[in-house]
Each structure stands twice: as C-alpha cells, then as structure tokens.
Design a protein around this nucleic acid. Structure first.
Lengths: 253, 253
DNA sequence: GCGACGACATAACATAGGTTATGACAGGTA
DNA sequence: TACCTGTCATAACCTATGTTATGTCGTCGC
C-alpha cells in the first residue's frame, strides 16, 4: 500500500507515526520515469525539488571548462538526491541517470514544513545530510591520497556496500552497472587507465567485466587492496532514535 | 554582551528571537583555547560535541595507512565544525588547530532539542550543513579534475573568500596562515610540487610568501588561473528566511 | 650561544598516469 | 543491409607530478 518511495525509505530507519506518513505522502509527487542517460537537472537550473530514487541509478556531476567531467556521487535506490542544494537557489551540478530509473520529486521549500511538524523526520533528514557528507569526505581522501588501484577498489566496494543496504529489489549487489568512463570521471582518472587497472584486478580474479557493468568477485581481496572500512557508511541511527524517543523499525511499542 | 560565539555567528544569518538566543546560550559551553598544532579530537573518539570557531584556524584531516595525510577542510572564525559527525558515534577524522585558536563546544545530542524548539535555528543548521556539502563538492572537483596550478589558485581563493565573509576581527583577508605542507595535504600534492607551483605564481605576482603564511596579491589574476566562481560559497539565506517568515539581520520588524 | 626542529627552497631523477591512436564489437536506427 | 555511436581494449609515447636528497634559515628550548 505504501507506494511512496520516501516513506518506504524512511521506514528503513525508524517506525513512522501516522502523522509523519501523511505528511510525507502529501508532499511527495508522483514518481517520474527516466531512461538511461537522461539529464534530470543541469547546473544553473532552479533548485526547487529534491528526489528519492525509487529504482535505477543516477549520478551527479560537474562539467569542467575544459570539457572534462567530475562525477561527484552516485545514487542507488533509496538514496535522497539534492539535499545539498537546500542552501542555494540554483543547482551546482548536473543530475544524470546511469540506468533507466524512477525518481520521486519532493518540493524543496516544503522541507521546512516537515522540520516544523515532525521532530523525527527533521532528525532523519539531518542524519542523511550528515551521511552524505561522510561519503564526500571519503571520496575526497580517495581522490587525494590513493593510487589508481586503490581508488578503483575502494569505489567499487563503497557502491556495493551501499547497494547491500539499499537491497530491496536488487538482484545482485555485486554487480554495478557502471561504465569505465563513469568510473574514470568519478575517480579523476583517464578511461584508459581505468581500463588498465580494471584488467589488473581482473587478472587477480577480484573483479569481472560484463558488457553491462562490473562485478565484484572477491570483496575481501578488494578490501585488502583498498584499505576499505565501511564505518563511514553505517550511521548510528539507534542512538539518535533513542535520544528523541522514537522507535526503530519493526520494534514493538 | 553576546559573548556566545554561536549566537554571534547565527545573527550573521538572521535576526534571532529572545527565545532562540536563550536556547543557544544555554547549550553553549565556555570557549576553550588551544595553541597552534593541538589535536582537538582524533579519529575514533566519541563524537559528542561540535564546535564553533571563535578565533584562529583549524582543519580536519584523515591519516592514511601509509603515513600520508588528507586535509578535508579548513575552518575559519565563524565556522561550525563537526556537524557531519551528527550521524555517527565516533569521529571519522582528526581536528587540528592551524593557528592558536579558540573554540566553543556544544553538546551534539542537544541539537535535537534545538531542532524541536526553534524552526529558525533548525533551518539554519540545515543550511550550514548544505553549504558544507557544497564546499566538499567543490574540493572534490578540485582534486579530481584540475592541475596543480589550478588547485592551488582555487584553494587560496576559496579560503580568502571565506575569510571575507568571516571578517569580524580579521585584519587582512588576503593573508592565509597556511604552510606549504598543509596546502599539499589539502590538495593531494607533494610539498615539493606545491613549492614549485607557489613559486610560479609568485613569479607572476599573483601571490607572495611570507614566513607566516601566503598572501594573495592579485585575486583577479588568480581567478583567471583557477576558473574560480564563488557561487558555491554564497548561500541563499534570504529566500529561506522568507519562506519561514523570519527576518534578516538588522532588518526592521 | 648551541642543538634541534620545522618550514622553505632547489636540483636530479623516477614513475604513475595521461594522451593519442587504432581496432573490435554491440546496439540502435534508417 | 549498412551506418552510427558508445564502450571496451591495447599499444606507444609523453609529461605532470612524485621522490629523494641536500642546504638554508628562523625559532624555540635550554
């Protein structure tokens, strides 16, 4: 019955009251479907909505003056996209679908209503924003201080880990629908070098390359390569809920 | 009379009601002074407070396994530090003072009280978190897709711009108390190469190197080098205030 | 005033990763 | 069918940046 994607996502974190559900449901618009490679928004456009990813993948990216691109983040089902434009009138990056995808828009300005009427939702939104930051910080260190090999391994592991947690209707969390171009733009590398690196990892049976993406074959091996520690992806929801007197999902009253 | 640094900072954004001021004042602890190079917190420590910078500079950084460091962000007077640990029990990075500095601690868990009792403050905190993200995104593209020359110029401009806005008791916003080691760790470069690059910029009279930091001599010239656009630092506070019916600072009732 | 240390400077050399080029293959479409 | 276009693959070559080394200078502790 809960077709709303934002409700479904938030129920992942906490038991929502009837009031909270109504509030979210009333603000969420009907989902929109986009085919692979669609530009959902563009730098400079009015930042009037944020979105929840219902299915498929998307990514946000910046176009540089010299024609190169920087992929800032990828989004998988369940992710909330666009919160960081809360502080700005216009979008600072592009949003592009990586696969066919379905997203649910939510008017940005109404966020303040949510904050005002639900303590729980307000805190959850803040939690999400904090987690987004943690991800950016990790990607930052990835770009700044790791070798290409480590970068690739680390990034793949992160996405797989995020898929694990999103796993609602995902068949295979070890398969990522990423092109090598996308990986390169996310990691600040050239496509050629991503290809070299990926082949290297393939030789070692750590990954496999399909026509429609990349598969992780040996997560432990990759972890070793990358020095990956997923702590930055595992928010401490429990103690937040406790401190505001809310219930975890599925927990009895 | 308002010795509280967080009040002073928030009044920069909006006119605070008496209730808001009391709320903030009641939660802020007395400022702590740290001398240059002090480690305020460390990866893995309990993330129980966030801080407002009253004076001086600080930076957050990650220590990598191989002994290298990644500086994640710098903080100048007025900045709020540590919000991104809201979602986590333990700190994901170190906080280090760059100069002698004074910071005001604020218990993290009480943030939820603030959210609950003040719509205005809640929105302002969210605004700050969004701006923090925008800064990280920009630094990300800086690391991923710019040359050393551009990186350095861009970073210097960003910090100068942030200083401009913080300018309370800052004498010279063109002077940044940064060592070359710090710059290198922020930009993912080696010290040697930062030195080369800085010398290059010095030749062109764009910057100057003092014993106690770096000075910007020609911001327009640097802008040209870096392709710098400060939009990501200029939040749209006005329309946020309007949408929640709050007043801008200094604006009559 | 001496020794230690940290920041800055510079040179010689090494390499990870970028660039350019080319070809094979698959999917879409006219 | 033929023609694009995007992705992957691979090779030869190049360069921006890293590494190692060494020296100077100023500051701090004593």
């Amino acid at each position: 019955m809960t077709a709303s994607c934002i409700i479904r996502h938030f129920e992942h974190y906490a038991e929502l009251g009837e009031k909270d559900r109504e509030l979210l449901a009333s603000l969420e618009k009907t989902p929109k479907d986009y085919s692979k490679g669609t530009l959902i928004w563009q730098e400079g456009m009015d930042a009037d909505h944020f979105y929840t990813v219902r299915s498929g993948w998307a990514c946000s990216l910046r176009n540089m003056e010299d024609g190169s691109r920087q992929v800032v983040d990828l989004y998988v089902p369940g992710d909330v996209v666009g919160l960081r434009d809360f502080a700005f009138r216009r979008r600072a990056s592009n949003l592009l679908t990586v696969t066919d995808a379905s997203l649910c828009p939510f008017p940005k300005r109404r966020l303040t209503d949510v904050f005002a009427s639900s303590r729980l939702l307000c805190n959850l939104f803040f939690l999400i924003a904090a987690r987004d930051q943690a991800i950016l910080v990790e990607r930052l260190t990835n770009l700044g201080r790791r070798s290409a090999r480590e970068k690739v391994a680390h990034f793949l592991l992160e996405m797989a880990h995020r898929l694990d947690k999103a796993c609602v209707d995902v068949h295979d969390c070890n398969h990522l629908p990423l092109t090598q171009v996308l990986l390169a733009d996310a990691l600040g590398l050239s496509t050629v070098h991503v290809n070299r690196t990926l082949n290297e990892l393939k030789q070692e049976s750590l990954t496999a390359l399909g026509p429609d993406g990349i598969s992780l074959l040996d997560r432990d091996g990759l972890k070793e390569v990358a020095g990956f520690d997923p702590e930055y992806l595992d928010e401490d929801v429990e103690s937040l809920l406790r401190s505001i007197g809310a219930r975890a999902p599925g927990q009895q009253a």
